[in-house]
Amino acid sequence: MPRRRDVLRGGVALALGGAGAAWALEPPSGGIVLTISGQVRNPNDGAHAQFDMPMLERLPQTSFSTHTPWYSQARQFTGPLLRDVLRAAGAHGSVLRARALNDYRVDIPFEDPQRYDIIIARLLDGAPMPVRDRGPLFVVYPFDAVPELRNAVYYSRSAWQLRTIEVK
């Protein structure tokens, strides 16, 4: 029987798009910075998947530099890919409702993180971001790499001071 469960879990992991994310999410040890709620397969706190900063740091990191409407120059953003975070949480659905500290809300289609290398930036030019600097987490689309992203729709989806993602 245990064998069968392993196989089953592997299948689910494969169906979600890759191996390595299928383990049960560890419980957060420090201050929670990101909560993924809604349709989550790997919750670690009741129905939610909670992340503290070290958990996000342990995921594969991506770094790119891009212009945004909020800074005069191109800035370098570093953090895990949104799709890796979602996979770690076992999220599945069609819409991600991102919510910021100031109650800003925006819906991101589930396909966006699959199609683009969206990161949940935790470092700005290599330094952590305080709330005053639109931190601690910042959804960043690769605006410079993909020209079709340079419009108000994607700018509005680039939520800063990110706090929760509700998977629907």
Partner: peptide, 20 residues
């Protein structure tokens, strides 16, 4: 403190040379 920081981050946005 959170509200205060959020407001400060907003004001900072006006200091940066952006479209806003």
């Amino acid at each position: 403190s959170l509200r205060y920081d959020i407001w400060v981050s907003r004001v900072a946005l006006l200091r940066e040379d952006t479209a806003a």
